[in-house]
């Protein structure tokens, strides 16, 4: 196990060389993967969303596919279609791009709700049903969806229930000055990606996920998670508080974070580290019609003393 952990640390380091100055986001993405969740990245085009997804797939030795969502994309374009095979005199299923370990769903809010929900159902069930036949998706199955800020023209905002299926939502943001400078001075990212050597194999991922789920959670920490979640429910600034499912997601993400940090137990710090990514997209502000901001989340944390 300690080799695997070392490999995990190497993965983060290697990814950090491709996506410069974004280590917290890389860690969050990895934690999301270890917690068997899906990731939503919300940011402007060109800040490295695709690169992050691609790099992770490459480093973990996983099969990668990318779906560019457009307004005319159909569910079959994602799941796949059955076509008539003249030689075999029968229908043959041509699996769609969703049959991959890491699926990058780019600009998911450009597609119609019908197409969006086809992907989101696949994410939830980890299987797809086409032409009456249910097909399991590969394991691991990790969706990284990106979305443009919803005020852009021609977008269909994801409904609440769909957002809930993403364990985390992160923002990449602009790189800082030094990181951008190295980016500009450095070589071609695509070329770097191609030369990237896997640090882990697909077979390693399952034991890692299992180990992450077993990180110890003390009663005192459960108290803290409950207090935190309870405060989101009492806060009049939000329409609803966090659901029990969100609380479970928070705990799973905190476990994965602690695991990446090479710890045997979850600390309040771990919960606080993943809290913005897990909670913000699940909390709707009463005013302004948007999701909770980083300030809101920080305020909740500061209002919740450790038990």
């Amino acid at each position: 196990m300690s080799d695997l952990r070392t490999a995990l640390a190497n993965t983060i380091a290697a990814a950090g060389k491709i996506i410069l100055g974004k280590e917290p986001q890389i860690r969050l993405a990895l934690a999301c993967l270890l917690a068997r969740g899906h990731l939503l990245i919300e940011d402007l085009p060109g800040v490295g969303k695709t690169t992050l997804a691609h790099a992770l797939a490459q480093l973990l030795g996983l099969e990668f596919s990318r779906i560019q969502f457009t307004s005319d994309l159909l569910p079959a374009d994602i799941i796949g279609v059955s076509i008539y095979d003249r030689e075999r005199a029968g229908f043959r299923f041509l699996p769609g791009p969703v049959f991959a370990h890491v699926v990058l769903a780019d600009e998911i809010n450009r597609a119609t709700p019908k197409t969006q929900s086809a992907l989101l159902e696949a994410m939830e069930e980890r299987q797809v049903t086409a032409e009456g036949e249910t097909r399991r998706l590969p394991d691991p199955f990790f969706v990284i969806a990106t979305q443009n800020p919803s005020h852009q023209i021609g977008t269909f905002a994801l409904p609440e229930s769909q957002l809930d299926r993403f364990l985390m939502r992160i923002e990449l943001g602009y790189p800082d000055r030094d990181a951008e400078r190295s980016l500009l001075a450095g070589g071609n990212t695509r070329e770097l990606l191609g030369r990237l050597q896997p640090t882990l194999s697909p077979a390693d991922l399952q034991p890692l996920q299992q180990a992450a789920a077993k990180v110890h959670v003390a009663p005192a920490l459960v108290d803290y998670v409950q207090a935190l979640v309870g405060n989101t429910r009492l806060d009049p600034a939000f329409v609803h508080g966090l659901s029990p499912r969100a609380a479970l997601a928070l705990l799973a993400a905190a476990r994965a974070w602690a695991f990446i940090d090479r710890r045997e137990m979850v600390l309040p710090e771990d919960v606080q580290a993943v809290f913005p990514a897990v909670a913000a997209h699940r909390l709707n502000r009463v005013q302004g019609n948007g999701h909770a901001s980083a300030d809101d989340i920080g305020a909740i944390v500061r209002r919740t003393p450790l038990p």
Partner: peptide
């Protein structure tokens, strides 16, 4: 220590 602050922080 801030009331919300974890031990390592």
């Amino acid at each position: 220590r801030h009331p919300w602050e974890g031990p390592l922080d």
